[in-house]
Nucleic acid binder design. Structure first.
Lengths: 223, 223
DNA sequence: CGTCAACTTGATGGGTCTCAATAGCGGTGG
DNA sequence: CCACCGCTATTGAGACCCATCAAGTTGACG
């Protein structure tokens, strides 16, 4: 799978940003073996020691926090090639679950140093991963400030960029997942999608498939 | 000034987290000389090359993004001892301004390596700074999901922790700054503060001074 | 005492949440 | 093949929270 260029929002405008150098982190092979995870299976839980780094070989993973009022905030979705599980401190500050049946490469952080490519320092790898995460998180903040319609459109465009497809998206996650990522309710997400379909800017062959019919209109609605 | 312990929200609950090691980054002296900035003076602008790292010697700084609908999103406030200006890529993705008359230490990134304490690697310093930033950003997301009252209370408690005062806060920033940080309007911020004062959980000797009168009640209102 | 900026307060409307019911979809078994 | 089931998604009606627009208040400074 090709290394993806990450996305950044600058001034609220969508914009592709090339990586600072051909992303070593993402193309870096963590380990040979993969572990299988079934749908909704937990990869790690909040509060557990953060000893491993994971790379998605196939499938899709979500990380989330559980708020004390019971709501769930999804922090990020990870697709094949993405690396996750890195934490600032010793413990995980979020939980991770497989969304679909997935295969993950895992490597113990303490063993990582021996697998690092010649000439690369551990701190540089970690810095790169943390930097990517920071950019994603900052974009996420800007997304949460907007109207429901703008959030949903922003989400769809992000997904379209992350899948290789030009205009047809296969969503592995449920409406609840989307809602918890965007800080909305499933009803609002559903209504917004319906309204976009009515306006002929997208079409919904099935609930998990979205076709972007008019990207220009979508970008305009981002305001 | 003492090195502060940073804050993290876990499960939406407030919780102090000790730094992984006595924060080298924050106690690290960037340079001898300081530059003065007047109120509202720009330190750097979005899109400019990110060549310097800044450490607040006195005063207070805000970083922000301007959205394309004209709104402004404040990403963070920086107080004495805090370091800012580090970017993932070559250019600044946000602007920075002094909130009050401030003095800042600045050092060119390219010169940084020569000033790094013996035995420390550049990447480790950068990693530490990025990690701090990531934690702040993640907390910020969780704050933006809550009700106006919870956001304002969360903000006040954060400020109280960052100032050394136990219960009396001196806010250097305007209502507009607070609103743009919390994703609210100034009216909502003002009304919320008034309501909290009416409920005797805080008092407002002046608009920029806040006394936390009942921290237990405040924590309870965080839900 | 006038001016200006910052802040507060009030009235109103709109966007999203809540609660509730209906519809679709995949699986399982008769 | 069809009936049934559970789960997911859609649709509707009403309430509530916050934004908006507008007016009034306060405080600093000349």
């Amino acid at each position: 799978m090709a290394v993806r260029t990450s996305l950044a929002r600058k001034g609220g405008q969508r914009q592709s940003v090339p990586p600072p150098f051909p992303s070593i982190a993402k193309s870096f092979d963590l380990a040979g073996a993969t572990t299988a995870f079934s749908r909704n299976e937990e990869v790690f839980g909040e509060g557990e020691p953060a000893e491993y780094l994971y790379k998605v070989a196939s499938g899709c993973v979500r990380t989330y926090n559980t708020l004390n009022d019971g709501r769930r905030q999804i922090g990020a979705f990870y697709f094949p090639g993405d690396i996750f599980g890195l934490e600032a401190r010793k413990l995980h500050t979020c939980s991770a679950e497989a969304i679909t049946r997935s295969r993950l490469q895992a490597i113990k952080l303490t063993e990582l140093v021996s697998r690092i490519p010649r000439g690369m320092v551990l701190n540089r790898l970690l810095l790169e991963l943390t930097t990517d995460e920071l950019q994603r998180t900052q974009s996420h903040i800007l997304l949460l400030l907007k109207s429901a319609q703008e959030r949903v459109i922003g989400f769809l465009l992000d997904m379209a960029d992350r899948e290789d497809s030009l205009s047809e998206i296969e969503l592995p996650m449920s409406r609840q997942d989307i809602a918890d990522y965007l800080g909305l309710t499933i009803e609002t997400v559903s209504r917004t999608l319906t309204r976009l379909e009515t306006a002929s800017t997208i079409s919904l062959p099935s609930s998990r498939r979205v076709v972007l019919r008019d990207r220009q209109a979508l970008n305009q609605l981002l305001n």
